[in-house]
Design a protein around this nucleic acid. Structure first.
Length: 803
RNA sequence: GCAGGUAUGGCGAAAUUGGUAGACGCGCUAGACUUAGGAUCUAGUGGAGCAAUCCGUGCGGGUUCAAGUCCCUCUACCUGCACCA
């Protein structure tokens, strides 16, 4: 129908030549910062899912510019990380070159889609000018005692030969290669993120994240308030447990400690069944997290013989067990077990034939435990609990805690699930950690003026067999002098995780070319917070939390103006294959945006992805629906042929209503109804026998422009309707003219629609009532019946209740 | 197991937030124009019924003049997770 390729290229060139989308730091215009997650430039190229979110935010950006804002809508590349390295190894090219190639592809694709990014601010996390500042910021963490080295049991992928964060080894398999993850002791750089747990929780109040995003953060931080209690061991020594259910303390019949924790190592010399215990520890270390987290496998374990634990409330000696459901690195690595009031303890007790004592009355505990979600808040009372028997659960919680605290053997504590961030990777393709290990001085920071510490330009980047980073093999690079004492020293060979660079990139966009600072305070103050941050739901827990942590730290040392730098976070639904399944090569349901752009044009693809459904919901691909959007554009083009020489607007209500609708929908993520409103406008215009006026046509083009920017500019120019749309201002609407003077409203009898009447806007009640009661069809249902009452809802509905 | 989300025609979905359920689009049916059309245009399209009317938003209850929307119970599916003690 039209040469979309030629038209789209023409306008893309126009925008580039005119720097239409350049954001100006310190401009007098009001700043507006729209951010979409920058992609990891994979070899697969841009996904239609990327197109969905980039188009959505692009439409918002374009409208905001027309509304007079100085809009920052930047794009860059999150290009460090294991996949790039894996890809490079597989294809025998340097990751640097692979990334360069992929970025080129991505950028080309984005350009053909007409996104209004300010390309002047483009950077990649792999640029030395960028990662210089990532390294610099790491040094600030270190200098403020927020980074430390620790030997921790870590998730080890034997195939990738690298450590994975808990987040990266979901389900006990390596996220990248699928191998089973095993536990391994490893010295790692850590960031003290757990220090920020409370602040990260509180900070949410200063944001306008979508509610489900906030919940995701809250659950990840996982605050729980409870009691940490000391437990004496018969024959000396003690350990601590954490519980949120201290009210069940008299029901303790055993304790369970983590097989991977420190406690069992300390106790080992006193254990009489060492072989059994060691075997179980060994067995656990082989188990993946998946095995340990499977509910039905949570009953394994063995008694630690030779010692007993003493219940501090009644002096009763009970056995100690090892159980892999207790994790060494959460809480204290030990739990009290009350089989009558915890289902997992119940099953464990059954399996190992352990005693059960019911301490809360109100349910039978022969078959199942009577758990807290069943007894809390229901006035249940304690039994078998000495002086606390007879108190309600809530009273007992306080009373028992008070007693234990006053005896000095317990503390009220908050526990957080969130742990410190394991920040090391034994990888080549990451930011080198700028630390030097000196035999005399220990760990020493590199001098800040020597940054960036560049990745060496070598051919060898495959992982070593012993688990060291590939960097360890490059002796020229590793060997250096201690910045403090000048002795021979060695560089850290671990690199940073891919989350590092993405934790502060939105700050860099505010001042992308700054050579003296990661971003100037002035620039950050000018732009303020990110107004809109769009990303996938899969990043709302980890990436968002890391980024907030990073910002809060920078704020605390006075380097950013706000404790939270992201105001609104929204997330988009996935674009599924036409089979309603997640797109994947193996399923053969992948849609390549290039193919769609070639065949239908970028505008059609953009309109379709906005129209496909609720933006925040997943939506399947539909070629038929896509064609419908092409038809919509074709009809808009044809409408131009029906342009008359009149001006003004035939239908003021349609005009004002639609302007309002588009403005609202583009700022509330309701892109699908925005497109629908434009279709309605087109439908109306097509009915005009004498064609549309230039004002009407231009309005339609302008309102559609944020979503379909190329064809609308082209038609605007073709029919000489005025200056380029991208340079003009967004139309205003008159609130007084968005509703018709007369309206049809429904009349119900006993809640069922029996007729419609026509009323004038804000017509008075008595008059409406009269019309309603005299409606022909309504009379048929009311005659001979007693009218109990008539409910009139102004401009909406009338309901007549009869008997 | 925990957390979050979702459920409306043949399909993708709307619904002014308690007020005519199904806007808009796809598909389908009939017609027009055509040598032809998988192009375009016109009309129709939730189900049943000649009609009046009845039924209809995952299931079952409830509140209300009025429920897709609010409350309670249940079910299925999707996503995330670290058995969170």
């Amino acid at each position: 129908m039209y040469d979309h390729k030629q038209i789209e290229e023409k306008w893309q060139k126009y925008w580039e030549d005119n720097k239409t989308f350049k954001a100006i730091n310190g401009s007098d215009k009001k700043p507006y910062y729209i951010l979409v997650e920058f992609p990891y430039p994979s070899g697969a190229g841009l996904h239609v899912g990327h197109v969905r979110s980039y188009t959505a935010q692009d439409a918002l950006a374009r409208m905001k510019r027309m509304q007079g804002y100085n809009v920052l809508y930047p794009m860059g590349w999150d290009a460090f990380g294991a996949p790039a390295e894996q890809y490079a190894i597989k294809n025998h090219i340097h990751p640097k070159d692979a990334v360069k190639e992929n970025i080129k592809t991505f950028k080309g694709q984005m350009k053909t889609l007409g996104f209004s990014f300010d390309w002047d601010r483009e950077f990649s996390t792999t640029d030395p000018e960028y990662y210089k500042w990532t390294q610099w910021q790491f040094l600030q963490f270190y200098k403020h005692d927020m980074a430390y080295k620790a030997t921790v049991p870590v998730n080890w992928c034997p195939n990738c030969k690298t450590v994975l964060s808990n987040e990266d080894s979901a389900g006990g398999v390596c996220e990248r290669c699928g191998s089973t993850v095993i536990q391994k002791e490893k010295s790692q750089w850590m960031l003290r993120m757990s220090n920020y747990a409370e602040d990260l929780l509180k900070g949410l109040d200063d944001t306008h994240f979508a509610e489900k995003v906030k919940l995701g953060q809250i659950n990840w931080i996982g605050k729980s308030t409870g009691v940490e209690m000391d437990v004496e061991i018969s024959g000396g020594g003690k350990f601590s447990i954490f519980t949120t259910c201290i009210e069940t303390v008299y029901g303790i019949t055993f304790f369970v400690i983590a097989p991977d924790g420190k406690l069992i190592k300390e106790l080992l010399p006193r254990v009489t069944n060492k072989d059994e215990v060691l075997a179980y520890i060994e067995e656990t270390s082989k188990k993946s997290a998946m095995d340990r987290t499977e509910l039905n496998k949570g009953k394994s374990g063995c008694e630690v013989k030779g010692i007993k634990a003493i219940n501090p409330v009644n002096g009763k000696e009970v056995p100690i067990f090892l159980g892999d459901f207790v994790l060494g690195d959460y809480g204290t690595g030990a739990v009290m077990a009350v089989p009558t009031h915890d289902e997992r303890d119940f099953e464990y007790a059954k399996e190992h034939n352990l005693e059960m004592i019911q301490v809360i009355d109100g349910a039978d505990v022969k078959e199942h435990a009577f758990e807290k979600h069943d007894y809390l808040g229901k006035g249940c009372k304690l039994i078998n609990s000495e002086e606390f028997s007879g108190l309600t659960v809530e009273e007992a919680k306080e009373a028992i805690t008070d007693k234990l605290v006053s005896k000095g053997i317990a503390r009220r504590v908050n526990n957080y699930k969130m742990r410190d961030w394991i920040f090391s990777r034994q990888r080549f393709w990451g930011e080198p950690i700028p630390m030097i290990n000196c035999p005399k001085c220990g760990w020493v920071c590199m001098d800040e003026k020597d940054l960036p510490l560049l990745l060496p330009d070598v051919a060898e980047y495959e992982p070593t067999d012993n688990g060291e980073s590939p960097l360890a093999k490059i002796t020229d690079w590793v060997n250096c002098k201690c910045p403090k004492c000048g002795s021979d020293a060695k560089r850290e060979t671990d690199t940073m995780p891919n989350w590092a660079g993405s934790s502060w990139y939105f700050l860099r966009f505010m001042d992308a070319h700054n050579k003296d600072e990661f971003a100037s305070m002035d620039a950050m103050k000018y732009w303020g917070k990110v107004n809109w941050y769009n990303g996938g739901m899969e990043h709302t827990a980890r990436h968002l939390l890391y980024a907030r942590f990073w910002v809060q730290f920078l704020y605390n040392i006075g380097l950013v103006p706000n404790k939270e730098m992201i105001d609104v976070r929204v997330s988009h639904g996935m674009v599924l294959g036409s089979d309603n399944q997640k797109m994947s090569k193996s399923k053969g349901n992948v849609i390549n945006p290039d193919d769609i752009v070639n065949e239908y044009g970028a505008d059609t693809l953009r309109v379709y992805e906005m129209f496909m459904g609720d933006y925040q919901q997943d939506a399947p691909w539909s070629v038929e629906s896509l064609k419908g959007c092409k038809r919509f554009i074709d009809r808009i083009i044809r409408l131009g042929e029906k342009l008359n020489n009149a001006t003004g607007f035939t239908n003021e209500v349609l005009k004002n209503k639609t302007i309002k609708k588009i403005g609202e929908d583009l700022t509330t993520l309701k892109y699908n109804t925005a497109v629908a409103a434009l279709m309605i406008m087109l439908n109306e215009y097509e009915k005009y026998e004498n064609g549309v006026t230039s004002d009407e046509y231009r309005l339609l083009l302008q309102l559609l422009n944020p979503i379909a920017p190329h064809i609308t500019e082209e038609l605007n120019e073709k029919y000489n309707l005025g200056i380029a749309l991208c340079e003009s201002s967004w139309p205003e609407y008159d609130e007084a003219k968005i509703v018709e003077d007369t309206q049809k409203i429904a009349v119900q009898v006993n809640g069922k629609v029996r007729g419609t009447i026509e009323i004038t806007l804000d017509e008075d009640e008595t008059s409406i009532k009269e019309k309603a009661l005299n409606d022909e069809n309504v009379l048929r249902h009311t005659s001979g019946k007693e009218i109990i009452k008539v409910i009139v809802i102004k401009n909406k509905i009338v309901n007549i209740v009869v008997k």
